[in-house]
């Protein structure tokens, strides 16, 4: 019965159901917090699914855009008097514009060169956040205003709510929204060009696609996703450090994207879930966190080159046939 539904709708249904039933399995309200973090990372990852999975362009600097989003929410309310939600939008606009300006020269590059250029861009953003301590508090980080979700709802309905629970549903809706947009794109004229660029840039050009422009479009969209994720993280934690823009965070985002299966939105979310939840589960082995992360990255990329979900699907269908 499920196979009759278009894949786009099916993916959204599966995602909605998972978001709805997950809380039933939560042993404590602490898990709402982990769920929220998973959703926030998922949003950044969905953007990278569009860039890496659809268009085949790697970026090792997207944490930089998350940094811009986060610090927009940290700085704009105090310095410009903007409400937090508008600060999130401001951050997204700044990230999008920056991506648009630097994207054209950067995206002329391919493979390793593109990886290093984006890495350099992310590093520069992270350095500014670390060094301009009079604004950003430097490496120690800074406090962030509240989005006021819980207060707003409590005022409306006269109830007592836990912040992490409210955020869980808010971030869940945002993930669904992000996934909906990315899934819309997949089978659209624009999405088809992006996916064709993944396989052969030259062939895409010869059918009349302005490939440079489309790559730029994917870069800007993914930058906006990363920025919104960064803003949400800042507003959720009410505190932010420049670590959000670090190279390691960029690497984590890319790993999440490719881990689950870069071509698909659900795969990306699966990767984000795994890599966000795992360190929480491994806190006992805190010492081993890096060793584990490195091992997972290597093992999955060596033995499941397409990522977890596609490999799983292939194995299952092979079983079914056999």
């Amino acid at each position: 019965m499920l196979t009759r539904i278009p894949p786009r709708v099916r993916a959204l249904l599966i995602l909605s159901i998972l978001i709805l039933i997950a809380p039933m399995l939560f042993p404590s309200s602490f898990y709402y917090r982990i769920g929220t973090l998973i959703f926030i990372n998922s949003i950044a990852v969905i953007g990278l699914v569009i860039l890496i999975g659809y268009a085949g362009q790697i970026s090792l600097g997207h944490a930089g855009f998350s940094g811009i989003g986060a610090y927009a929410c940290a700085l704009a309310p105090t310095h410009l008097g903007l409400p937090p939600f508008l600060s999130l939008i401001l951050g997204a606009v700044i990230s999008g514009l920056l991506a648009w300006f630097v994207g054209r020269p950067i995206l002329r590059l391919k493979g390793h060169y593109l990886a290093v250029a984006t890495l350099g861009l992310g590093m520069l953003i992270s350095m500014v956040l670390n060094n301009e301590a009079q604004f950003t508090g430097g490496p120690d980080g800074m406090m962030v205003a509240s989005l006021g979700l819980t207060k707003g709802l409590e005022g409306l309905f006269d109830v007592n709510l836990k912040t992490s629970v409210v955020w869980y549903w808010f971030a869940g809706v945002m993930v669904l929204l992000g996934a909906w947009i990315a899934l819309n794109l997949y089978n659209s004229p624009t999405g088809r060009v992006l996916r064709s660029v993944h396989d052969s840039e030259i062939a895409a050009k010869t059918v009349g696609a302005d490939v440079a422009r489309y790559k730029l479009v994917a870069f800007v969209i993914s930058a906006v996703y990363a920025s919104i994720a960064g803003s949400m993280l800042a507003l959720f934690n009410r505190f932010i450090t420049p670590d959000i823009a670090s190279f390691l965070h960029s690497v984590e985002l890319v790993t999440m994207t490719v881990l689950g299966g870069a071509g698909s939105v659900l795969g990306g979310i699966a990767g984000a879930t795994l890599l966000t939840a795992l360190p929480q589960a491994l806190t006992v082995f805190h010492e081993y966190e890096h060793v584990m992360l490195g091992l997972i990255m290597m093992l999955v990329m060596i033995f499941m080159r397409d990522g977890l979900l596609p490999t799983l699907r292939k194995t299952l269908t092979r079983r079914a046939i056999a």
Partner: peptide, 13 residues
């Protein structure tokens, strides 16, 4: 992309 992630993974490891 896979090779980049493998060597970055090795670096983190």
């Amino acid at each position: 992309v896979n090779l980049i992630i493998i060597t970055i993974g090795a670096s983190i490891f």
